[in-house]
């Protein structure tokens, strides 16, 4: 579904990404783990064209998208839920969700899609008319994910969905990610909570200082000493 080859991005004079190769297959959930500053968010921004990569190829469902604008990439079916719960704080919950369906040309599908989001996140259904800014952190994250789903993405990219949430809410968010996966959504997940991310995902990439240093099936990575000591906080 998504294929990144030799992606290089500079951040000012600094090389932030140094030749990234990454792949996400249909129906998979792939996670990208790495320390703060490893370049995870820069990689997502480069894929979405929020920052301009220096070189490299990005193919989405077989077509090259590195020449497209962010808006055009979104319209192709790749949706990023950015970190920090980037909801529209001055809009209501309902308006946020409707903005999620902004690219939809089929007005008839918006109603049922809303119903589905409310079924998945009942707390949002009860707060449709509330300003998004008034939601709790966890609710804002649910809104951000729900808004992403309203676009009916082929590939949903989640950037640090559990960041800054209370433990119980983190649990909840990961169970939602699991459900989304089971219902067939292809997901690229970026997480600092490596343990949870590896447990929920099929495959993983480890990003260190702008390069992929390790990749493979999560079950195998979870057994590797370097992963356990560096990302799971266990002594080798």
């Amino acid at each position: 579904m998504l294929e990144v080859r030799g992606l290089v991005t500079n951040y000012g004079p600094i090389r932030a990404l140094d030749g990234i190769d990454l792949e996400v297959m249909d129906g998979e959930i792939v996670t990208l783990i790495g320390a703060n500053g490893a370049g995870k968010t820069t990689l997502l921004k480069s894929i979405m064209k929020l920052v301009k990569p220096l070189r490299g190829q990005i193919r989405f469902r077989g077509t090259e998208i590195s020449g497209l604008s962010t808006e055009a990439i979104v319209r192709k079916g790749m949706v990023l839920v950015p970190e920090g719960r980037a909801i529209l704080r001055r809009m209501t919950v309902l308006e946020n969700l409707l903005m999620g369906a902004y690219i939809s040309n089929d007005a008839a599908q918006i109603g049922p899609d809303l119903e589905q989001v409310f079924a998945r996140f009942p707390v949002l259904g009860g707060k449709q008319k509330n300003m998004a800014a008034a939601l709790s952190g966890g609710e804002q994250q649910m809104l951000a994910i729900g808004r992403g789903l309203m676009a009916r993405p082929e590939l949903l990219i989640l950037d640090e969905p559990s960041l800054g949430l209370a433990p119980l809410m983190v649990q909840e968010i990961f169970s939602i990610i699991g459900h989304l996966h089971q219902s067939g959504t292809t997901i690229l997940l970026v997480e600092q909570n490596a343990k949870k991310a590896l447990q929920v995902s099929d495959r993983a990439y480890v990003l260190e200082l702008g390069s992929i240093t390790l990749s493979g099936r999560c079950a195998e990575l979870l057994k590797r000493d370097e992963v356990r000591s560096a990302y799971l906080g266990e002594s080798a």
Binding site: M48, T70, R75, I87, L88, R90, Y102, I103, R147, A151
Partner: peptide
């Protein structure tokens, strides 16, 4: 819908872009 897109752009142009709004 257009009005909402306008408000979204005013609040945060990057977020609007990520929702497919042609800013």
């Amino acid at each position: 819908k257009m009005g909402r897109a306008m408000r979204a752009t005013a609040e945060n142009a990057t977020t609007a872009r990520l929702l497919g709004v042609k800013v």
